[in-house]
Amino acid sequence: MEQFKAKNKENEKNKRALVNEMKVKMPAVSENESTARSVVNAFVAHYDPTVEELADIRCAVSEAVTNCVVHAYGGRGGVLYIGVKAYSDRSVKIEIRDKGRGIEDVKKAMEPLFTTDKSGERSGIGFAVMQSFSDSVKVRSVPGKGTCVTLIKKLASEE
């Protein structure tokens, strides 16, 4: 049964075709938080998303990029890589990757209200926002090597 499920999943996966792709590289500085939102917004806008879907994506991207700027590189700058893919089933995959310090305990970092900030100026809900505003969030991280956050958003059917 498990084998059948896995194969079915694979078939489902193969049914969708990649229709467009974008790769962007930029310095991981706070000025680029809005730049990152804007470029992803411009790419996704081609696929006729609703205003709400586009706003969800902007917010989730902003959280992931801010994590790179603040946590991965500790505000010292580095390189931020953004990859966006649009598929024929109207799903959009966004990868936000850095080569920063990585996350020791991803599960803990993703707990709502978890923050390493002591100033009271960070809310600790960055991952919770990504999860709330995306259909799927995956985080892969290797301490000392970097982190990749993959966001999937399924756009509603065009009517």
Partner: peptide, 10 residues
């Protein structure tokens, strides 16, 4: 985004 929330909480 959540940085805005951080601003409000602060």
């Amino acid at each position: 985004d959540s940085s805005g929330l951080g601003l409000l909480l602060g």
